[in-house]
Amino acid sequence: METNDIFEQMACRYDTEDRVNTAKIIVQAVRSELADTKEKTALDYGCGTGLVGLGLIDIFISMLFVDSSPQMIEQVKRKIENGHIESASTLCCDFSVEVPRTLQVDYVIMSQVLLHITDCHLILTKLFDILKKDGHLIIVDFDKNESIISDKVHNGFEQKELIRLVKQVGFASAGAHTFYSGQRIFMNQDASLFILNAKK
């Protein structure tokens, strides 16, 4: 089987209509949190196939797509090449294990990633460290949902608790609000998404 065919199948599997539509809603929510970013650098952590980051690429001087899955990074690379996007680059890396020493950015965007991470404090600390002074961490994730019981993911987050955690890590200020509710969007359950904006 041709490599391209494998990538095509993966794209079909990951970029479902629902995921694409949800990503568009998330992109709009993130955009509403941003201002004067044309000269700023951004990093999409846990980027998956790049649906959210690619929707924001026009408002940053550069965007680095980071994911621990080589297959996901290949997908993003392909999209970047097909779109002739010169301001984007990729990195296959798990920051909970290793972070490139010289990496510094103005914005980190993390969409529907934190719920998959066991040690939230550790990853938030790593992301805090790579942000420049006055940099922002933008987190999009699910509100706490008691009807979800899983040993693979967190069942969402309490916004107040997460604000407390990012401040504990060192962020100077943070605010959050729910921006979208949908049917069967979280482990087949109705759920809501929030956005958190923390400033270093």
Rank of each mutant, 00 (worst) to 15 (best):
Ile138Pro: 05
Thr102Ser: 14
Lys152Arg: 13
Glu161Ala: 12
Ile139Ser: 04
Leu91Ala: 07
Ser111Gly: 10
Asp94Ile: 12
Thr118Cys: 07
Leu91Asn: 11
Ile139Arg: 05
Ala174Asp: 08
Ile148Met: 14
Ser173Lys: 13
His84Val: 04
Phe186Cys: 02
Ile123Pro: 01
Phe142Pro: 09
Ser89Asp: 15
Gln168Cys: 09
Ser147Gly: 13
Leu165Asn: 09
Tyr180Gln: 05
Asp134Cys: 08
Leu103Ser: 03
Ser150Tyr: 04
Cys120Phe: 01
Ile139Tyr: 04
Ile85Gly: 01
Lys152Pro: 01
Leu131Val: 00
Leu137Asp: 00
Asp129Glu: 15
Phe95Trp: 11
Glu158Asn: 08
Met110Val: 03
Gly83Lys: 11
Asn155Arg: 05
Gly175Arg: 11
Leu162Val: 04
Glu146Pro: 12
Val169Glu: 10
Asp134Ser: 13
Ser181Gln: 12
Cys93Leu: 07
Gly83Gln: 13
Ser96Trp: 00
Ile130Cys: 00
Leu127Gln: 06
Gln104Trp: 00
Glu86Thr: 15
Ile139Gly: 02
Lys126His: 14
Cys93His: 03
Thr90Val: 15
His154Asp: 04
Asp119Asn: 11
Gln159Pro: 02
Cys93Ala: 13
Ala176Asp: 11
Gln159Gly: 02
Tyr107Leu: 04
Ser111Glu: 09
Glu161His: 07
Ser173Met: 11
Ser111Met: 05
Asp94Lys: 11
Ala176Trp: 05
Lys160Cys: 06
Lys132His: 08
Thr118Lys: 11
Ile148Asn: 08
Leu131Gly: 01
Ser181Tyr: 03
Ile109Glu: 02
Pro100Tyr: 05
Arg184Ser: 15
Met110Ile: 00
Gln112Ile: 12
Leu91Ser: 08
Asp106Cys: 03
Ile80Cys: 06
Asp119Met: 05
Ile130Ala: 00
Ala174Asn: 06
Leu127Trp: 01
Phe95Met: 12
Val99Ala: 12
Ile185Lys: 06
Val140Phe: 03
